[in-house]
Simulated scan of single mutants.
Amino acid sequence: MVNIVVNGVERQFDGDEDTPLLWYLRDELGLTGTKYGCGIAACGVCTVHVDGAPAFACVTPVGTIDGAEVTTIEGLSENGDHPVQVAWRDLNVAQCGYCQAGQIMQAAALVDGSETVTDEDIDYAMTGNLCRCGTYTRIRAAIRQAAEAK
C-alpha cells in the first residue's frame, strides 16, 4: 500500500507499485490536467511537483513516492492565481496549450524555489520542457513577470 497526498488530499494506492504516477493521476484520480507526451521523460508535458520539486509523472513509479506530497496543475492554486498562472494569462503564453500544464508546473517550481530568477536559471530549469509551438519567448517573459510578482 502506497500512501501519498495529492493536491492536499490523502490517498492510498494498492495497485502495481511500478505504475507510472501519470496513469494513477489521470486514470484513477481523474486529474487530466497532467498530460501524456512522450512517456520517456523527454518532453516535460507530464511535469508535476513531488514534495515541491518538479518530477516527470510518466517515469515516476507510484511505489517510489510513498509518503510524498504530489501537486498537479489542478492543485497549484485553487483560484488559478499562482504568479506563474497569472503571468501566463497576462502574456497569452499558450498557443495550442498541450504542453502548458507541464511548463507552468516547471516554472512554478523555479519561481517558488528561488529568491531571484535569471535568464540562465530559466534556461536551465526549462530545458526539459518542450513546446512544439515555439512560445519560448512568451514563456521566458511570463517566468520573469511571475518572479518579479513573487
Rank of each mutant, 00 (worst) to 15 (best):
residue 2 V to A: 06
residue 7 N to G: 11
residue 10 E to W: 00
residue 10 E to F: 00
residue 15 G to P: 10
residue 16 D to V: 00
residue 16 D to N: 15
residue 19 T to K: 12
residue 20 P to F: 10
residue 21 L to S: 02
residue 24 Y to S: 03
residue 25 L to N: 02
residue 27 D to P: 01
residue 28 E to Q: 14
residue 30 G to H: 13
residue 32 T to S: 13
residue 33 G to S: 14
residue 33 G to Q: 05
residue 33 G to I: 12
residue 40 I to V: 15
residue 42 A to W: 00
residue 43 C to E: 10
residue 45 V to L: 10
residue 45 V to W: 05
residue 46 C to H: 07
residue 47 T to Q: 07
residue 48 V to G: 09
residue 48 V to N: 13
residue 48 V to S: 13
residue 49 H to I: 03
residue 50 V to S: 04
residue 51 D to F: 03
residue 52 G to A: 10
residue 52 G to I: 06
residue 54 P to I: 03
residue 57 A to M: 13
residue 65 I to Y: 08
residue 69 E to P: 01
residue 75 G to K: 02
residue 80 G to L: 11
residue 81 D to M: 12
residue 84 V to D: 05
residue 85 Q to R: 06
residue 85 Q to I: 02
residue 86 V to F: 02
residue 86 V to W: 06
residue 88 W to F: 15
residue 89 R to N: 05
residue 90 D to L: 03
residue 92 N to T: 04
residue 94 A to G: 03
residue 95 Q to L: 11
residue 96 C to Y: 13
residue 96 C to T: 08
residue 98 Y to V: 08
residue 100 Q to M: 12
residue 101 A to H: 02
residue 101 A to D: 00
residue 103 Q to C: 05
residue 113 G to K: 11
residue 117 V to D: 14
residue 120 E to Q: 15
residue 122 I to P: 03
residue 123 D to C: 03
residue 124 Y to C: 01
residue 126 M to D: 09
residue 126 M to P: 04
residue 127 T to Q: 14
residue 127 T to E: 15
residue 130 L to G: 02
residue 135 T to S: 15
residue 138 R to V: 01
residue 140 R to H: 12
residue 143 I to P: 07
residue 147 A to V: 05
residue 147 A to E: 01
residue 149 A to G: 00
